[in-house]
Every structure is written in C-alpha cells, then in structure tokens.
Nucleic acid binder design. Structure first.
Length: 436
RNA sequence: GCGGGCGUAGCUCAAUUGGUUAGAGCGCCUGGUUGUGGUCCAGGAGGUUGCGGGUUCAAGUCCCGUCGUUCGCCCCA
C-alpha cells in the first residue's frame, strides 16, 4: 500500500457505504422537520474554551481526545468533539434566546482522538437534536419519541433497547455523590485502579465499570433513585410515563451515567448488542446547567446525538438509486442528437447515463452493469429518419420510436414492471410477443 | 493511552518443515460478433507479499521496529 492513505481513524465514504450514510441522514432530516425542528449548522471548530468549560476538565474528551491547535493568529481552537456545546454557543451568540424555545437539529463530522475500532472513528458523523429553553419533561419525551421513530423508520428498532436513568437535579446529584463517595471510600481496597481515580474525579462513573471487583461492590452501593428529591423524582416519573404511553421499550438502568459534566435529570442511551463494545447508537440527556456554565442566562436544554456510521452499519440494504436510462449514440450525428436528448431527459428528472465509446456490445454491457432499465440506441439510420430505438434491458425487448415521442415512450416503458416483479414465464411471453 | 489477533492483485483467499519464476476465483480490459447486454470461448493488464531493518546459502513464511486494521480495556456516537 502506498503512503497515500487517509489519516488513522478517518475514511473515505463512497458506494454502498455512502448510500447507507445518506439514507440515515435523509430519514433523520425528514423526521426532524416533521417534529418541528429547524436545521442549524455550526462551525466544525470552536474556541477550545467552549468545550473545556462545558465538558468538564476531567472528562475523557477534554483530557485526552480533543484535536486542539493554535491558528495563525494565536487563537486556541478545537475541532468539535460533540455538537451540543457548539449549538449552545450558537444559541447565545445568535440571539436565539429572545425567540423562546428553540428546537434545533443538525448533522456533521465530529473529531475525537481515540483508538479506532469497529464503529469508532477519529472523524465520525453525528445526527443531533436539541430543545433549548424548555424545562418541562415533555421536551425530554418529545426528543425520545423522535429518537425512537428514527430507529423504527430505519428498521433497526427491534435490535435496540432504551436505557433510561435520572441523574437528578443539582441538589439530588450532590447528595447522591456524597453518599456514593462515602460508600466507596470505605471499600477503596476492593476498587480497581481505574475506579480509585474515578473516586477522586467522578465517582458516579464507578457505576458503569466493567471490572469484576468493582461490580461486586455495586449491589450494596447507594442507588441514585433513593437520593432524588421530590422535584427530580416527579420529573423522572413524568418522563417514564410519557415513554410508556408511546410504547417505547425501555429499562430503567440505574448504572447509566454520562461522562460529560453538564448533564442533569434525564440521561439515556439507545443500545444494541450488534456492534460489539460500541453498542451505544444514540445517547443524550438534559443539560439544564450548560448554558449558564458557558456564561449565559440560566437556560434549560435537552438533546441527543446519534452516530451515523453506527446506524448505517445496522440498517439493511439502503434503497437502490433510481434505475437509469442509458443513451447509446453511434456516430457523430447521433452524438449531437443524444446530447440534446440527454439534457431533456435529465431536465425531466430521469437518471440518464451517456456512454461515449466502444462498440454497441460494450455499451449495452456497461449500461446493464450500471443497472440501467432502458437503453436509447441512436445510430445513423435512426438519425436519418428521426427515430430512436428504445430497448428494455430487463425484458430484452425494444421498440422503434419517433424522436418526438421518445419522452412518452420512455415514461411508459419505465412504468412497466421490472423483471424482478414478473415470473419467468410471463417474461418469456413478453419477449415472444414483442421481440422483432 | 494500555493489551491481544491480522496485513499476499481492485475484492475474497491459496502458496508444503523457510526453497528457486507468488497462484486461483470474482472483477476489469481486448478479441471471437463492423448495430444489440447478462451466458460461452480465447487472450491480456494488474504485486516492491503494508513499510523499514535483521537472521539465513535462501524470507510471503522466522525476529525486531513501524504504519494500518481488528477485538478488548478506557470512554463514548
């Protein structure tokens, strides 16, 4: 292999991968519109402070995963590792706060300097949906409904379960954190090395440790649910009730915590077992403290992000592109005519392929390989009498057609069932009936 | 950032205990067919065996490094 390779953890997306990718994005855009979200696009880099302040100094993203660099004017910039902080920043700098509740969606590349694995890249892409300015649990439910419908429309919801938890408000969280710290402090000797670090930085993360020793301590550990204050408990119950009425299957996963500092109340992940250890396909939660943390007015918010690559890996075959019409001009005069014909067919929205070289056999061959449905053959004879041969590549039938009637003829033949939809016997009949 | 597996043609894979000119299928190109495709037949192109070093008379094969990839840890989409 040559040195011309993409940077580690990045990749070119084309062919089947690109079709899957686009399909995911298209379904998302359509749904987000239906749910009343407005599209937003934010820069793929921000001042480093935007992420440092909001994600938490001790988070993995900030301590070891950011692509940070100094630009020519000496500003410290970071390629966005996630979408929410950038959108929150845009919300403030764009004066959206005056407009009341903002329902925003977007998608694009994210960058994290991690060890690549299946379903994990250094440049990856996320779908993102946020509701900023709504403090009500109904907003959380609304967002979960969008997420679930997305997974359903992609045809993958049967392989995915919603893990739902509440981290409570600030008060609840601090109380729980204190209790948790006290509990684990009594068992420091039994903790793994990683978890001893977590105990210092973010004790809640010990809860989702995979270390057997750590896990043995969990059954007796304090549970977040027992530390939720009345407000937080009511909030969570409303969210759960909404999820239930929507018929979204979920489990209350008390060990679900999120790595970023800005989360409160609702936290959730949609998880599949089909992607190895990268099972989370969509995740998010409520971040009531985020905007204040960034220096703005106290503003509630909820949101989620989904990995496009991970979703694309889970879906079945994406829809095939439109069957094409292939133009096969033979000779100079024919080529001129084909040029105009191609322009008109394309203007009419038909996928039209134009082949430039080779004998008829090769051109027909290429047309068939490109999955064209029809071939329009124009040679000197046809030019001379103002006609075109329209060949149905599925049925191996063809018709002579006057130039002025080509559009109608093409439409008619495209409307006929493709070969896949008719029985072999019927296909033979057609050929017998129409083959010259 | 840490640990394990794997890198041979565009793709999927062969190549005996280290042995001489690294093969096959698929795909691609050309011809058989001067204007009729998918089948068939014949031919062709395509490789610094990821890269670098080492051991050896001899390395695709063994050793070291490196890059990539993959699985797990960490964490997440």
């Amino acid at each position: 292999m040559s040195k011309l390779q993409p940077v580690r953890g990045t990749r070119d997306i084309f062919g089947d991968d690109m079709r899957r990718f686009s399909h995911v994005v298209r379904i998302f855009e359509r749904l987000a519109q239906a749910y009343g979200f407005d599209e937003i696009s934010t820069p793929i880099f921000e001042f480093t402070e935007v992420y440092k302040r909001t994600l938490g100094e001790t988070s993995d993203v900030v301590t070891k995963e950011m692509y940070t660099f100094e630009d020519r004017s000496g500003d410290l910039l970071t390629l966005r590792p996630e979408y929410t902080a950038g959108i929150a920043r845009a919300y403030m700098s764009g004066g959206m706060a005056q407009a009341g509740v903002s329902r925003l969606f977007g998608w694009g590349p994210m960058f994290r300097h991690e060890r690549p694995q299946k379903g994990r890249f250094r440049q990856f892409h996320q779908l993102d949906a946020e509701i900023i300015g709504a403090a009500e649990p109904a907003a959380d439910v609304d967002l979960l409904a969008l997420a679930w419908q997305l997974l359903s429309d992609l045809g993958i919801s049967d392989r995915i379960v919603l893990h739902l938890n509440s981290l409570g408000d600030q008060e609840s969280r601090l109380a729980y954190r204190a209790a948790l710290t006290a509990y684990f402090a009594d068992h420091v000797d039994a903790l793994s090395e990683d978890s001893r670090m977590r105990l210092q930085k973010n004790p809640m993360r010990i809860l989702d440790s995979k270390d057997p020793g750590d896990r043995a301590l969990l059954p007796d550990a304090p549970q977040i649910a027992d530390y939720l204050n009345e407000r937080s408990r009511a909030f969570f119950e409303t969210v759960c009730a909404g999820v239930k009425s929507l018929g979204i299957p979920y489990i209350h996963d008390q060990r679900l915590v999120r790595g970023l500092d800005y989360y409160s109340h609702t936290a959730f992940e949609f998880v599949t077992d089909a992607l190895g250890s990268q099972g989370t396909v969509l995740g998010g939660g409520r971040y009531d403290g985020l905007i204040e943390m960034m220096g703005g007015p106290s503003t509630p918010g909820v949101g989620w992000a989904a990995g496009i690559e991970r979703l694309a890996m889970l879906i079945d075959e994406p829809p095939a592109p439109m069957r094409a019409v292939a133009l096969i001009p033979m000779g100079d005069a024919a080529e001129k005519q084909a040029l105009v014909l191609a322009r008109d067919l394309r203007a009419a929205g038909l996928r039209t392929l134009m082949d430039y070289k080779g004998n008829m056999k090769k051109r027909l061959n290429r047309a068939a390989k490109a999955d064209a449905r029809l071939a329009l053959i124009i040679g000197d004879e046809e030019v001379a009498r103002g006609a075109v041969v329209v060949r149905d590549l599925d049925h191996s039938t063809q018709k002579d057609c006057a130039l002025w009637a080509v559009h109608d003829q093409v439409r008619m033949m495209l409307a006929a069932p493709p070969i896949a939809d008719i029985s072999p016997a019927a296909s033979r009949d057609v050929i017998d009936a129409e083959q010259p």
